[in-house]
């Protein structure tokens, strides 16, 4: 699962709406990733501000 850099994330929801698995949920100021994540890497690659790093735990 990707790792969110909370100091960079602007909580814009781009990754949420783009995730093909709907595996990301945006709480007001935090992203939650669920087990449906297939490590496709899309969210990390298209994040406008580079706040996601692929392949955490």
């Amino acid at each position: 699962m990707p790792v969110e850099n909370v100091n960079k994330c602007l909580h814009c929801g781009l990754c949420v709406g783009s995730c093909p698995q709907n595996a990301i949920f945006l709480n007001e100021v935090r992203l939650d990733f669920n087990d449906d994540c297939i490590e496709c890497g899309l969210c990390s690659r298209i994040c406008p501000v580079g706040a996601l790093t692929p392949g955490g735990k």
Partner: peptide, 26 residues
């Protein structure tokens, strides 16, 4: 619920986008 579009997906409406149909903006 905007770009994040959760309600549609919970209800089973296909709102998934192809990569070429997504703009990433700042």
């Amino acid at each position: 619920d905007g770009y994040e579009s959760q309600v549609g997906r919970w209800a089973g409406i296909d709102t998934n986008l192809a990569e070429s149909d997504i703009m990433t903006c700042v």
